[in-house]
Design a protein around this nucleic acid. Sequence first.
DNA 1: CACAAGTTTCAGTCTTGACTGAAACAACCG
DNA 2: CGGTTGTTTCAGTCAAGACTGAAACTTGTG
Lengths: 182, 182
Amino acid sequence: MELKPVAKRFVLHWGEMGSTWGVNRTVAQIHALLFITGRPMNADEITETLDVARSNVSMSLKELSNWNLIRSVPLMGDRRDHYETTTDVWELFRTVVRERKSREFDPTIEVLRDCLKSGDIASEDKAAQMRIKETLALMEALSAWASEMIRLEPATMMKVIKLGAKVQHLVHGKQVSVKAAE
Amino acid sequence: MELKPVAKRFVLHWGEMGSTWGVNRTVAQIHALLFITGRPMNADEITETLDVARSNVSMSLKELSNWNLIRSVPLMGDRRDHYETTTDVWELFRTVVRERKSREFDPTIEVLRDCLKSGDIASEDKAAQMRIKETLALMEALSAWASEMIRLEPATMMKVIKLGAKVQHLVHGKQVSVKAAE
DNA sequence: CACAAGTTTCAGTCTTGACTGAAACAACCG
DNA sequence: CGGTTGTTTCAGTCAAGACTGAAACTTGTG
């Protein structure tokens, strides 16, 4: 399948962005392709469209499954696996946040807790101990916050985002017009 | 300078994490070192402590400057540049968010806008056009939201984070006890 | 200005991990 | 069961970019 100009640009850009994040180019491209195409595709179609090795596609599809970013859907009269991704950007965002949190945040929180528990912590100077504690506290707070936020309905999350920094008035105990959120 | 066990573990872990994010190992290690040490260090001290090439340290310090994560401080009676990083984790967090936003989000927003403006967009099917628009809208909303949030005082931001998903009640127009935020 | 101390640059090496192509494997069908 | 179609694995290749060490450069000092 030959991509139209805009779709092609989208896929290529997404691929480049992927490498800036933790994801490799092919994985990001496949995801972008499924997203923009909006219908289930089989591995051969993907291979042909992106012009990469068949096995590369196979590996990347597995990776995307691990990220919960694609699911395979059976198609009547076709033995091959077909894959699709959600076309709901909010759903997508939620998944990415959840996965990155568990890959990048949670392990670090573990290490920091472990550092503080270890007998060796006492030999560090007070200020350094304090900084580790603060780092842990910040990461725990962000982690808990993210977990809560991704449980919200897309529409609700959008409103919260749109509300933006205005929430600060709430924590300061002031009255906030709900209208501001819309 | 020989690192104490916990500091060493912290630096090594931070370095590994760095590679998962966009930052290379040495850059992340140097930053972790300055953070945990909590005092200005010169390039030679860093070189010796981390046991990497002098030039590698030089390059990495430049990279950290580009990220606004370190600043050089003059020390009385010492010609060499000494570098320090903030020891305030919230300040740190803010800087990382700002920089990542401008490196990873803003360019993508540009590309998406460009896609939608281009003459080629009309030849894509309606649903695909819609998805690009929605992606752009989401990224713009998140970008604007992040810009607002990093302007808050650390203490305020902490309260907002702690408030967490309870904000949803605000956007639904319900009464929220400020006590919940503390 | 000559020298010392400090810093930056850069060509080349090394490491990591993405990617390929072929072969092995699995499932299905006549 | 043999053949066909589809999927996965894996050893080897390749590319990107991190890292090194030496040389070039810059700045300050007697």
